[in-house]
Design a binder for these strands. Structure first.
Lengths: 225, 225
DNA sequence: CGTTGTAAACTTACGATGTAAGAGTGCGCC
DNA sequence: GGCGCACTCTTACATCGTAAGTTTACAACG
């Protein structure tokens, strides 16, 4: 965690913030603890960030840096790669999701990322309105999926066999029959992986977009373009 | 805000919490202020909730109460009505979204809601796996859309004409050409409403589900059922 | 009626947090 | 050398969640 005697930079502060948040959760990120991680008193940090708000903004933007920009292959696989990269990143820094929901001023990396995605779609022949729609659906889905994944009472990567039954036990079977049915199914299905769930929705959306692109006219938009 | 001399109940506390959060935001909800709103000292609240965690859990579940359960019409319009109701509710209580992402133990209303949605799909003929997939995509989309709506630097309901240009001014046009193009378009299109964006994605997903239902076999699932 | 048990509300207190204000400290440039 | 400035530290305060212990008021009983 940062050697003793170098002058601090804003970048170091933000990076340490990300690292700390990963380790102890976003609520564990306090100015004093962050200072400690950097061998510095809490108040010294205020020469590199205006306040904690801005620290969190910077951390959020730094996370965006990790997301793979879409490459210039066909738009579909480009979107797929980006989607998985975004999901991975959000899983690697679970706290980031809570921040994007409350931050209204996007950082530099954030804007660059959005522009790149939009560009990939436009160059692939998406009319402007459809490109905007596509961006909106895709991002909404990815973020929402990440929210759900975090709300799950188990780690989404491991086989949920016993866990599912534990959850099942929480609510009375007869009162919530459909949930019970579902949980039972997952409990017995040992091969189940949550990635499949993500891929299903993603492909469904990409199919829809492909169809919309083929038809030509983006629906639900005042005719212009 | 609650008359003087009635004994407090847990329900009153939670309702006051929701009201307070709506008024001053979730960070403004402190035990002392909540107590004040109920004409009671902060510590008295601890006789009705174990700690602040549990207060937030209860508030989250109370919000779920407001979401319209799907009626027993055809599944498609049922899902549409529910989707819009969920979005409205999340917009009415913007703080709730941040909570669902961090809460892992669902409340009673939450579970009931999930069961009802699942039930509607099952009764409409969705195989179990497809019903689960459908639930996952839809909820992910709705939550994610709400996240994006909140991250927008403007109120999603009003015409963003001048606002868009203000945003546009933030980042250099030449550096982010596609975003600039998009923002310019929205600035000139006075008839634009953000609901259309929501409806586009929702219909796209519902179309996809309808097709998957027609085909019969849910993709991406180990063959069983 | 007084007595008493108990659930609900209150009082006090503590450690942690974000940060305002101002006082050191050390490095680069004259 | 010494001046200026960028950085850091010290001290202090209001506010937060909540632990511990005390007071209050009402219901049940003699």
């Amino acid at each position: 965690m940062a050697d003793k005697r170098t002058r601090l930079t804003r970048e170091q502060v933000l990076a340490a913030g990300v690292e700390l948040a990963d380790a102890v959760g976003i609520d564990g990120v306090t100015m004093r603890k962050l200072g400690q991680a950097l061998c510095v008193e809490a108040m010294s940090l205020y020469h590199h960030v205006a306040n904690k708000e801005q620290l969190l903004d910077g951390m959020t933007d730094l996370v965006y840096t990790e997301i793979q920009l879409p490459q210039d292959t066909d738009w579909r696989t480009a979107m797929q790669v980006r989607a998985h990269s975004l999901r991975d990143t959000l899983n690697r820094h679970p706290w980031a999701l809570r921040l994007v929901g409350s931050r209204t001023s996007p950082g530099d990396a954030t804007v660059r990322h959005h522009d790149a995605v939009l560009g990939t779609l436009r160059r692939a022949g998406f009319p402007l309105a459809l490109a905007a729609h596509a961006f909106s659906v895709l991002d909404a889905y990815i973020y929402g999926f990440a929210v759900q994944e975090q709300a799950l009472p188990f780690d989404s990567e491991e086989a949920p066999t016993e866990l599912a039954t534990a959850i099942l036990a929480q609510f009375p079977t007869n009162q919530y029959p459909y949930l019970a049915e579902l949980t039972a199914r997952y409990a017995e299905d040992t091969g189940y992986a949550y990635v499949q769930e993500f891929t299903f929705g993603l492909d469904l959306i990409l199919d829809g977009l492909e169809r919309a692109l083929a038809v030509g006219a983006p629906p639900y938009t005042p005719a212009r373009e």
